[in-house]
Simulated assay, not measured.
Amino acid sequence: MNLENSDRYPSAQSTLPTRKFCVRLSSTRRGARLARLLTVEQLRSWEVPFETAELVVAELASNAALHGSAPGRDFRLTLTLTTADTLRIEVTDTRPGHVPTVRTGAPPDTERGRGLLLIDALADRWGITPGPGACKTVWAELVTGACG
């Protein structure tokens, strides 16, 4: 009998806690800035490198505030640090029909339209999940190497 794969005898890694932080913020520039600042402080408290995550959150929160909000609705930031040394960043907004796309070939002097190219370059994985309800979640995962 292989004890590592047995449900009766979970591996030590599977019993380690997952850390999670979740907050609702106003869909404004101020809310997006606060998302970035809260991310930095939370990751510092978890003793996890925060520089890349700070950039990813800044972009996703800015997108949620500028493009993904319905009037009077907030967005949600969720940070999850797993036992597999992965930080999952999720930003959930209230415009499920407004799905962001990666815009390649944007003119170099354009101020907008390259945010998801940044996410694509910085994240190990990213994507978009519809729901729950009238929402969508744009997520990115970063391998942190911090839980070793």
Rank of each mutant, 00 (worst) to 15 (best):
Arg19Asp: 08
Thr39Glu: 03
Phe21Ser: 07
Leu60Arg: 08
Leu122Met: 07
Val57Cys: 01
Leu16Gln: 14
Asn5Val: 09
Val91Glu: 04
Arg112Ile: 08
Ala61Phe: 01
Ser11Val: 10
Glu51Ile: 09
Thr94Lys: 07
Arg73Ser: 13
Leu38Ser: 04
Thr39Asn: 05
Pro49Asp: 11
Arg19Pro: 02
Leu142Asn: 05
Val48Ile: 14
Gln13Pro: 03
Trp139Asp: 00
Arg73Met: 10
Val99Gln: 10
Ser6Gly: 06
Thr86Lys: 11
Gly68Cys: 06
Thr86Leu: 05
Gly72Leu: 07
Asn2Leu: 09
Gly145Cys: 06
Val143Ile: 10
Asp7Ser: 14
Thr144Arg: 06
Ile128Lys: 04
Ser11Lys: 12
Ala121Lys: 11
Arg44Ser: 06
Thr144Phe: 04
Gly127Cys: 03
Thr94Ile: 07
Gly31Thr: 03
Arg73Glu: 13
Leu87Glu: 12
Gly127Ser: 02
Ile119Thr: 04
Gln13Lys: 14
Pro17Val: 12
Leu77Met: 06
Ala140Tyr: 05
Pro108Arg: 13
Asp120Lys: 13
Ser6Met: 04
Cys22Thr: 15
Leu3Arg: 14
Val138Ile: 15
Trp139Asn: 03
Ile119Cys: 04
Ser26Pro: 08
Thr137Cys: 09
Pro71Asn: 06
Phe50Trp: 13
Ser11Pro: 07
Gly131Asp: 06
Val57His: 02
Asp7Leu: 14
Val143Tyr: 09
Leu66Asp: 11
Val143Ala: 13
Tyr9Met: 12
Ala121Gly: 08
Thr104Cys: 06
Arg103Gln: 12
Arg112Gln: 12
Ala84His: 11
Arg76Ser: 11
Arg36Glu: 13
Ala70Leu: 11
Cys135Met: 10
Ala12Asn: 08
Arg8Asp: 12
Asp120Glu: 15
Glu51Arg: 15
Glu141Gly: 02
Thr110Val: 08
Gly113Tyr: 07
Arg44Met: 10
Gly105Pro: 04
Asn5Ser: 14
Thr129Ile: 10
Pro108Leu: 08
Gly148Val: 09
Arg30Thr: 14
Pro17Tyr: 07
Asp85Glu: 14
Ala84Leu: 11
Pro49Leu: 08
Cys135Leu: 05
Gly97Asn: 10
